[in-house]
Computed example of a mutant assay.
Amino acid sequence: MTEITLAHLSDPHIAHDKLCLPPTAMLNKRALSHLSWRRKRRFLHVGAILDRVVADLRATAPDVVALTGDLTNLGLPAECRQAADWLRRDMPAQTIVIPGNHDMLVRDRWPNTLGLWAPWMAPAPDDFPFVRQVGPVALIGVNSARPMPCFVAAGQIGRPQADRLAAILHDIGRQGLCRVVMIHHPPVAGIVPPRKALLDAALFRDAIARAGAELVLHGHSHMSGLSSLPGPLAPVPVLGIASASMRSDRPERAAAWQQIRIATTERGFHIEIRRRIFRPDMPVLALPAMIFASYRIPSPI
């Protein structure tokens, strides 16, 4: 394969209203998140909008889907089972997932929660970052989800994971593959307020600056946008995408997904990005393509 089509979506926040919620599992931070869901967020994250986004995505038959976290709202075992069923039933077979902060709201047994997503993700907490190769593209999944105190939705990757990320990026770059890094929390300062930020973003930025990457994908902010991080020789594009279920009239906030076509060239990669936006009671808004050229140059580390 010399060209693949990658679909990027994030933060579906699949509704949990019909699930049985064990009272003992709610005696923690989950109770506050559930209250927020009942009072406000269930009116913003709409299942019918998510269905529309997924149907549009599937119609394009992407080679692979990158889903950057927050499939659940409380991270309950029942929600994780529901999300696994949704992945099997509704998403293309070649889907790659990383966890978001809502998926790891509190500490819980991995086999009963995120371990259920092993077919689409790293099988164990210590297996991040993980790599999935599709044609000339290597997707690298980073875990920034960590249990945090109440009213804090921040993330953290930790130095061991950051060091492994730099080594992986270096090795894959030497192989001549297009490196697409998936992380839930935005690694660029200022996109979200401090209580929602990546606390050790400097570690992530240092790995990118040392080893390089062709593209970084994130969610969490519930806002679509483009930014960048310094690479060894050129800036690395950083793409955020709004929640795939968000009801909003604002184009940057409305539910969306990104179609990313990556083609190999004699010198590197041609990357073409098209964002598709879903506002209530309106046709799909397809934005003009963003185009990037990336060159295969072995990076120092």
Rank of each mutant, 00 (worst) to 15 (best):
V65M: 12
L67T: 01
G69M: 09
D70K: 12
D70I: 06
T72G: 08
T72A: 11
G75E: 01
A78L: 13
E79G: 09
C80S: 09
R81Q: 15
R81M: 11
A83T: 11
W86Q: 04
P92I: 09
Q94F: 02
T95S: 14
T95I: 10
I96M: 14
I96E: 05
V97E: 06
V97W: 05
V97H: 09
V97Q: 11
I98L: 10
I98Y: 03
G100F: 03
G100W: 01
N101R: 11
R107T: 15
D108R: 15
W110K: 12
G115P: 00
L116I: 00
W117D: 04
P119Q: 08
P119N: 02
W120R: 13
M121K: 06
D127L: 09
F128K: 07
P129T: 03
R132H: 13
Q133I: 01
Q133H: 04
V134H: 00
V134S: 00
V137S: 00
A138E: 02
L139A: 02
L139G: 00
L139Q: 01
V142F: 05
N143A: 07
N143M: 03
A145E: 04
A145M: 07
A145F: 07
P149T: 14
P149F: 11
C150M: 15
V152M: 12
V152A: 13
A153C: 07
A154L: 10
A154N: 12
G155S: 04
P160T: 15
P160Q: 15
Q161D: 05
A162Q: 15
A162C: 09
R164E: 05
L165Y: 04
A166H: 02
L169T: 08
L169Y: 05
H170G: 14
H170Q: 14
D171I: 03
I172N: 00
I172P: 02
G176T: 06
L177C: 02
C178G: 10
R179Y: 00
V180Q: 05
M182Y: 00
P186A: 12
P187T: 06
A189F: 13
A189L: 13
I191H: 01
V192W: 01
V192Q: 02
P193L: 10
P193I: 08
R195V: 15
